[in-house]
Amino acid sequence: MNGEELLTTLDKGKKEIHSSSTIENLEELRIKWLGRSGIINKNLETIKNIPADQKKEFGQKVNSVKKEIETLLDTKKNELLQANESEKKIDITLPGTPYPQGSLHIVTYAIEEISHIFERIGFIRMTYPEVEWEFFSFDSLNMPPQHPARDDFETFFIDFPAHKEYGKMVLSPHTSSGQNREMKRLGDPPVRMINIAKCYRPNWDTTHTPMFHQFEGVCIDRDINITQLKGTIDYFAKEFFGKDRETRLRPYHFQFTEPSFEVDITCDVCKGTGKVKKEKCKVCKSGWLELGGAGMMHPNVLRAGGIDPEKYTGWAFGIGVERVIMMKEGLKLDDLRIVYGGDIRFLEQF
């Protein structure tokens, strides 16, 4: 092909590209022109038959045609793509394809979260019997036989012959029953345990269920003191509820700790001020919410676990799981019984 013919062919090519109306057709034209055995390459192959003095000129011509075709193809492709794009119509407000949607119990979420928070500071999670002997639930916790918590109104007893050494069989009324078992399992400190479990007490009304969950932290070592208990609880509160929350310890009494405290956290609703729009906050007590009980382990409790209270000290706390998850999520349940009522309309929301 000489230069003239090349130009004619180019004209033809331009027309073809212009009148092309699909991407697929355009692709075919690209192969026809620019493919391995396309028109351009075929022309370049003929260069060997061209006289030496015209070779350069011919080559330049072919190349300029090639560039022109390339530009045309690209431009046309863009045009077509844009046209295609603007033709697409979709109502994106229609619902997506449904996938199965189950649910976990709210207490499960709380337990997972609590375990992770304590795992990060080296606490292992343990599990101990829910059906216990009085010894582990009371005696080993410095609660003598006449203690009010041991009577029929505070603890579920099981119809079973009493153990010679350990007393009657009970449903553990708190997670603290695990303290003695963990001390005995390890033999010697250090102890760093988090025990999250079902507990049982004979109360059943809008604010109590006969079964509930507690989580218990226990830390025993040399030189364990109140500042660490305070720090650990504050760490938990800030991790679980948020950095802006403050905690405080208030003097309290528990048989198994001395000193004993109640732990309070600033209320999320009134931000610890006790007032919402100049009215008394209905959620808390003057800006504070009770979180749970805590204290330095009573020497009798350490002794019962085979640990020398002269050498070691320890702290422990116990907090209600249902309570903290409700506080965290601002969940307002008029009736706590719904948590264990198994109603699908409650369960499926979590």
């Binding site: 292992i124 250090p190 109140i226 310890l249």
Partner: peptide, 24 residues
């Protein structure tokens, strides 16, 4: 306990005990 509470728990610093390995 009597000394500590009147001294003031709020005046005690917050610390966290050293992390140690406890076998689970």
């Amino acid at each position: 306990e009597e000394i500590a509470r009147v001294y003031g728990y709020h005046k005690l610093p917050n610390t966290i005990q050293p992390t140690v390995y406890v076998p689970q």
